[in-house]
Amino acid sequence: MKTIINGVKISLRAEWFDKDLLDFLREDLDLTGAKRGCGIGVCGTCVILINELPVQACKKTVADIVDMTVLTIEGMSNKDDPLHPLQQAFIDAGAIQCGFCTPGMVLTAHAFLLKNNCPSREEIRKAIKGNLCRCTGYQQIVDAIEEAARHYRK
């Protein structure tokens, strides 16, 4: 049994299946970009993409990623490559303060823009409704996603 995480194939053992997926990513794979803000699926800081859909890792187990393709924030851009345009837009728009919500926010927005590359601000707000941010008041996050959308149109 296997999964693909950030483009890398990983074999999974059956005894891991019940493990909390967020713990598995953070503790076993050292992918600490996904954060634990609430642990009950209501804050979005742990969001990752499974087959391009945003998912709260804290609500899933390892069994949920068998034969799936997983993207975490670490897989959005390679170390020496330029940032993904969405990430750059977050920086340029001032959408980052403490940054704790940022990985989940970026991935949620990425999944959304893959489906809707010409969204209204209202639609953007709805898309990130599951991601809490206590610092920014969301405005510059919406700005960033709106600005990044054009890169998804290409």
Partner: peptide
Amino acid sequence: MSKLKAKAWRNDATAKVTGRAKYTDDLKF
């Protein structure tokens, strides 16, 4: 509707937007 005006800059933005920034619980010894 607010438009992107001056680009923002902060020294820790890249680390945060890539998930590389290490917060306390991300540390291991």
